[in-house]
């Protein structure tokens, strides 16, 4: 590797350079993705969920607090991932979803504790919850990662981890609309574990991809 090699590289890069389309601002890209996801989820809820039953379930303030934590975590993690996919954004963006994540897990932990007293280790519909969160995370994650990788992020593992948290949180939020019965301790514990698994899978995928191309 010499200075001449570097000069030849500059000439090769210049010769190959084509006009490029600038990325839109990250906030706008996040709003576009979240808007599209919001429309799809709203349609699915209107078409497939039992709205009468949902109205009754939503009278439980604990559930509403927990769902607010999930939704805000999903939105903020996605916004942070779009910002961090660019080279010159502060790493502090990674902290954005942490307060709402703490809020969600605190609400969920409290509900877990309450349900453990009444249900003990009853399985409920944990397996169905697991399948739903993973199944919903795949298309959400696919579209989000496609958009995030257009920026060719320099820290792909961090971006993927936040993206994974965003899609898993939104999937867990959506699950509540298709879960028209009271949850058990095991259902809540399963949700928490599945969110962790989706985040791990996303960061593992990013690590693998990074190691293959760098």
């Amino acid at each position: 590797m010499t200075d001449d090699d570097t000069m030849r590289l500059i000439e090769a890069l210049t010769a190959k350079a084509q006009p490029v389309k600038r990325l839109r601002p990250p906030g706008l890209r996040a709003v576009i993705w979240l808007g599209a996801v919001g429309v799809a989820i709203t349609l699915a809820i209107c078409l497939f969920s039992d709205l009468t039953l949902l109205t009754r379930r939503f009278q439980d303030a604990r559930l509403v607090w927990e769902m607010a934590g999930m939704l805000l975590t999903g939105i903020l993690a996605a916004v942070a991932a779009f910002h961090l996919s660019l080279p010159d954004r502060s790493a502090a963006w990674a902290l954005l979803p942490l307060p709402t994540l703490a809020w969600w897990f605190a609400a969920m932990g409290y509900n877990c504790y309450q349900h453990w007293f009444t249900d003990g280790w009853a399985l409920g519909s944990s397996w169905a919850c697991l399948k739903f969160v993973v199944g919903a995370s795949v298309p959400l994650g696919g579209t989000l990662f496609f958009l995030l990788y257009r920026a060719a992020p320099l820290a792909p593992v961090r971006v993927a981890t936040l993206g994974g948290l965003g899609v898993a949180s939104i999937a867990a939020f959506t699950l509540q609309f298709f879960h028209p019965f009271d949850v058990t301790f095991m259902d809540l514990a399963t949700q928490m574990i599945v969110v962790g698994l989706v985040v791990l899978a996303a960061s593992g995928y990013a690590r693998l991809r990074r190691d293959q191309t760098r």
């Binding site: 570097t6 490029v20 600038r22 996919s85 920026a151």
Partner: peptide, 14 residues
């Protein structure tokens, strides 16, 4: 670094 600048040049916001 030069190759990376080339690859991600579309991310620069003027």
């Amino acid at each position: 670094v030069l190759l990376t600048v080339h690859r991600v040049r579309h991310t620069y916001d003027p």
